[in-house]
């Protein structure tokens, strides 16, 4: 009965392929948070005085609060469907390390919601008056920041997945934990716009990603197991 057993790597790759395939068949789901990000960030230039210096001052805050809220919206997609149709409990019972499988799911979630946000961020940044030279810095900060937000948010999504109306609780749970990412992400973006070296906040963001990637899988598995009970 143990013929053709596969290792964890193959299993994780198949799970990621499954999630990508499902996402392609219902592409609207992952585009909504992206649309939200674009609309919210471009509302600022419309509501404020069209003065370039003012826009540039608020650009970091607008970009990062937008990214944070959009990632919060997207978290709803991570475990809810799988929890409701019973595939998550099958995943817990498939005999592969559960923490690793959940990390693979979170990685796909970032590919579908975090990465697209990074890719459209230059549009929002230009609307907020950021100079073209600031784009590499802004993109690097958002790249690291969205990974950290996906990882931190996944734990919150796991904890609240069995609750019916979980939106506001999820926000209360995740937003305080995301504050360090917001602070250093916005700082890196401000430095990039000002044309100053931004390696210090980027290093800190990188450290947060490493820390989250190390601790999150175990917390995530424990949280989802509680949700499955």
């Amino acid at each position: 009965m143990s013929t053709g057993q596969i290792g964890f790597g193959t299993a994780a790759a198949r799970l990621m392929a499954r999630d990508l395939r499902i996402a392609l068949r219902r592409s609207g789901d992952s585009l909504l948070p992206l649309g939200f990000f674009l609309v919210v960030t471009t509302l600022f230039p419309l509501a404020l005085d069209p003065e370039l210096s003012l826009l540039r001052d608020i650009a970091p805050a607008a970009l990062w609060v937008g990214a944070l809220l959009s990632s919060l919206l997207a978290l709803d997609l991570l475990f809810r469907d799988d929890g409701q149709d019973g595939t998550l409990e099958q995943l817990a019972l498939c005999g592969q390390p559960f923490a690793g499988l959940l990390l693979a799911k979170t990685a796909v979630h970032w590919l579908l919601t975090g990465l697209p946000l990074v890719l459209v961020a230059p549009l929002a940044a230009i609307a907020l008056g950021a100079p073209y030279g600031a784009m590499p810095g802004i993109l690097a900060a958002l790249l690291l920041g969205t990974v950290a937000l996906s990882l931190i948010g996944a734990v919150g999504a796991g904890l609240t997945m069995s609750l019916k109306r979980n939106g506001s609780l999820l926000a209360l749970l995740v937003l305080p934990l995301a504050v360090p990412v917001l602070i250093f992400g916005a700082r890196a973006t401000a430095l990039a716009i000002a044309g100053e070296p931004l390696s210090a906040p980027l290093y800190l963001l990188g450290a947060m990603v490493v820390l989250a990637a190390t601790l999150v899988p175990w917390a995530l598995a424990a949280a989802v197991r509680i949700g499955l009970e």
């Binding site: 799970l15 219902r26 595939t87």
Partner: peptide
């Protein structure tokens, strides 16, 4: 269990591949 553990967006064939295929 009570829930079948099947994804509605996948075909029956894909569902079996992506669930049993995580094991062997």
């Amino acid at each position: 269990g009570h829930d079948n553990g099947l994804k509605g967006d996948l075909t029956a064939h894909e569902n079996l591949y992506y669930s049993v295929g995580l094991q062997r």
